[in-house]
Structures are given as C-alpha cells and as structure tokens.
Amino acid sequence: MGELRFEELRGEWVDYAIHRQERTFLPSEEHCPLCPTRPGGEPTEIPFPTFEIAVFENRFPAFESPRGAAEVVVYTDRHHDSFATLAPERARALMWVWRARYEELGAREDVEYVLIFENRGVEVGVTLHHPHGQIYAYPFVPPVPTAERAADARLGGCAPCALLRRELEDGRRVVYENEHVLVYIPHAARWSYEAHVVLRAHRPTLLHCASTELDALAEALQALTRGYDALFEQPFPYVMAVHQAPTDTGPERAGHLHVEFYPPLRTAHKLKYLAGSEQGGGVFISDTLPEESAEALREAVGRAE
C-alpha cells in the first residue's frame, strides 16, 4: 500500500508507491508478462493462449482499494503491434473498453478521477514494450482536471468547446479532422508536436458518446499516431492522456472529452527536457512554433493514410 503526502508549497499530492521500484523492467520478448500464456510456456499475466483485449489490476499499483485503483489495459496479444497498427475494429473495441472501465471505476466511492493513459517509448519511461495502456483511478481530483475546471470558469463556459471553435476558425494548426473529431496542435502547445484530439460536440465523457462518435475517435487517434510514426519515419514516443469529467460528487461535473498527446521529441533525434524554467518556474520554453509543427504533422498524417 502506498502513502499519499500533501506538498504544501505547491498544494499538490505526492504518491509514494515504493514497491514499484521492483517492477519488471524492459524484459525480453520471451519473458514479456503481457503476452498470452503459450502452452508449455512461461506463465504471464494473462493465463490464456490468445485474447483480444485484457484488463487487469496492476501488480505494482500506484493506487489501490480503498484509495483508488491502477489497471493495465493490454491492446492485443501481438507483442510487436502498436496503437497505430491495431486493426480498426480493435481500436474501436478499445474505446468501448475505456468507456466500460471509466464507468465502473468512476462509480466507486473512493474514486474521484479516472485517468486513462498510454506511455509509449523508453523516452517517456516505458518498462514493457508490449502494446498497452494504463488506468489510474485517483482518490482525489488531480491538478490538471482542476485547472480545466478553472479554465471553464475563466472562459465562462466549456473551455475545450471555446478552444475548438478558435482552432477551427484559425485552421493553421489543424492536423486531421473527421465528422465528429478535430485534431490540432494547440495555440499554446507546451511540446513541439503536442496534439489534442477533441470531440466536436460537447461530450463530458466516453459515456456520453454515440457509437459513431466512438468510432470516429478511434479513427482520429489512429490517424494521428500513424502520422507521428511517419513524421520522422521511426516509432514516435508519446504520453497519451484521455481527459474526461471528474467522477467526484462535487457540484461541478463539467468536462469535455478529449485526448492529449505529449511527445518529448522536438526533432528526430533531440528530446525536450523539463529543466530550470519548466521545473523551477513552471514555464515551458519551446524551440518550435505550433503552426510550423502542425504543417509538418499534417503532411505526415496525410502521408500515413
């Protein structure tokens, strides 16, 4: 069981999950714990010879009942796939899995925020290469959704709705769009190739989406991640985070479903580091302009279609 401590200077929680120090670190393919268990082979986390999508409670949880939860979502039993290379049907199925886990975890009394995310690439600290994401169910509302609520109050309504309109009017930072979803590099992106994948209609969570919207979301996410891989013609590292309404019992349950990507690369071979200004002052310094990055990424998304 971890320990939560409150850091007064920044006004934020820090989670001490020291058992995670012992977690499996970059195993070879034959020792991958997320592969299916082959007949006569080493037992893995999934004791079946094949599967489509598997979800299980993390063996090394950052949060666990009765103070939240930590789950692993395995996208496929194929070790060398990625989100981008999943069959379209599997990507659509994944949206429904995310929806089901948000609903079940969010209904728990000890869960106030459900964060679905994926870390891809050793550059962002991945310890298992098998295609998978994670879910953290926090026993409090974290700083990012709290800031999003504050943005709603500042803009006098749904902030993602307002920002979406602004990006549509401007158009220079749009990298992909379909009937229900817009993908753009935001006006004030922190990362060179940061992208926001936003439902056009106001949908607080995956639970509010029609099945056609979930299909469109899967399509947009795959178009973007394929574009990322095409950008520098190499597997593109990123952190992907699904933003939805908090599940606390507060008076304000507003939110607007969108998925944010934070890729650490600023060129094919150079990483953006969080250094003095970012860590000491909380101010991102960017070496690139969102409009120029969007042009390159839009071209890569088109090339990867």
């Binding site: 986390e45 598997a54 979800v55 299980f56 409670e57 063996r59 789950e71 199925a93 089901a100």
Partner: peptide
Amino acid sequence: MERSGPLALERYRKADGRLLILYRWTGEDG
C-alpha cells in the same frame, strides 16, 4: 456472459486475488 455495448466480457480472479477481464468484440450493440 456479461456484455458492454458491442463487447462481451469475462471476469476472472488471478491466484493473488487481482481482477482480470477479457474483452471480445462482437460487433453488435448488446
């Protein structure tokens, strides 16, 4: 078998008590 939209799912408990859920796409909204 449990359903969630177009998914069929089965729940298991691992030997150490952890939850495991396997999802299968049916393509039909249940």
